[in-house]
Amino acid sequence: MSNAEAVAKKFRERDIFGRWLLSFPALFVIFIAAVGPLFVMLLYSFMVKGDYGDVKYWQFSGDGWFSVFFQRDIFDDTVSVADAHLLILWRSIRLAAMTTVLTLFFGFPTAYFIATRPEGKRELWLFLITIPFWTNILIRTFAIQETIRNEGVFNTVLMKLGIISSPIQIMFTDTAVLLGMVYVYLPLMVLPVYASLEKLDFRLVEAGYDLYAPRLQVLWRIILPLTKPGIIAGSILVFIPAIGAYVTPRVLGGGKNMMLGNLIELQFGQGRNWPLGAALSITLMIIVTVALLFYVRNASKSGAGHGH
């Protein structure tokens, strides 16, 4: 009897070990590829910066985090707020939020259009939406540059038509960055919104019309609340890469219109201030997390309480 129990116990233990072994690939990815690097970044942000980049290992200091928000004058050592950093931070949040709103504004009608095509034809439209993905983001961004620069297609055509007499300066402005990001991230909004519109029961739309709701009310009271999961997913997919965008602000914004991604790159490159770069990266993460928590909670709450 006790012998049988011992055997059973042994098998159970072997079974548990086997299960852990099977989950190894998942654990490997989570710890080595996701949690591990984050921990390294956190560690770096608290170390002393090296003279030629890198950090002085195991010498800890709060300087990295200090200089995220404050700067010390080289001559008289007075401390002031690092307004350049805060400006970049604010620009990043503002441009990412505007990108999200604009991709939703343009993406929702697009997704609605595709979702209301006959079943066999939707794939074709989706395919057309995904075509830009095949081209490298750098090339797409340079293509926008070619279009909007002072000697570019846009200005040339307007001048030839006599609508303007001198070119409109679009390059190296926030508008250029915004334009580029909306263009690049639009599919990331269209696809999840399409996915939830495609699942939408259009009889509910008919029921809305039947109950005296004109088009705008049907959109506002029925379609939008029911496609909220897709809108939330699309917003997350656009906002996260947009706030950390690097290529678009670099090419279209130039040196003056930096965003957080460019600032971080600067610290790990020319700036040779790895602790500051690490601290900025983690700041970016915290902003994204807080923004998402706030957004998702707010969105689901307004969904539950809809129509009072």
């Binding site: 039947d210 709701a213 129509g307």
Partner: peptide, 28 residues
């Protein structure tokens, strides 16, 4: 258009609004 007709429909699968309560559905 349907929203201008004093005619209402009971749909085959009811088509009740899933994001509203019973009372909100009736009051819509």
């Amino acid at each position: 258009p349907p929203y201008k007709r004093p005619v209402n429909t009971v749909f085959q699968n009811y088509a009740l609004f899933p994001h509203m309560t019973v009372a909100q559905n009736i009051g819509f």
